[in-house]
Design a protein around this nucleic acid. Structure first.
Lengths: 90, 90
DNA sequence: TTATCATTTAAGTAATTACTTAAATACTTA
DNA sequence: TAAGTATTTAAGTAATTACTTAAATGATAA
């Protein structure tokens, strides 16, 4: 979970995740939504991958990126734990 | 929500939030749980405050910090939205 | 008032981050 | 094979971040 928060801290990476909500995309398709270089997007994708927020799947010459919902589940649990505890204490 | 992710990206700030789960604490009480200077903790508290993850309440000479559960609720919604959308697409 | 305590603000610094361009890798097709 | 496409890796840099110490603010109590 440590890497997850760092990964989510960047707006470009959050936008990438939002794009992937609507379905898998290749690295090139993702980068076409941004002004910055493909190289930079590739580096962002690597950070998302290390945080396990996405995984990749090579199909020939293309690499498809997919949301990994497991880590989003963990993030919900982590967050709800604050709400539960906080409400209990009141 | 923009500032929330940046605020959560730092382990010291996440630990501060975890401490506050068990009830409100003064800036001094919070800093006693860390090796670093009170000044540094004060700066972390300010970042948490700007992200509205906590709010402060001055009581005489002391400043009490409290979790703001509203923003945690928003974080749950933001995250669940990925899970819902992702599951629908499969 | 003066001293002390709790906390923040200011100013400086080393480490990290997000980007760039250029080169490398890997796959496809002529 | 060679050329072209998709993507990543490498190396460098400017901006940001997390810390430090010292000074400032504000409340309490002698």
């Amino acid at each position: 979970m440590k890497d997850v928060f760092k990964a989510l801290a960047d707006p470009t990476r959050r936008k990438i995740l939002t794009l992937l909500k609507d379905g898998d995309l290749t690295a090139g398709e993702i980068s076409s939504h941004f002004e910055m270089s493909k190289s930079s997007i590739s580096q962002h994708l690597n950070i998302l991958k290390q945080a396990e927020l996405v995984y990749d799947n090579k199909q020939g010459q293309f690499i498809y990126y997919t949301l990994n919902l497991t880590v989003f589940q963990e993030l919900v649990s982590w967050t709800i734990d604050f709400i539960d505890k906080g409400e209990k204490e009141q």
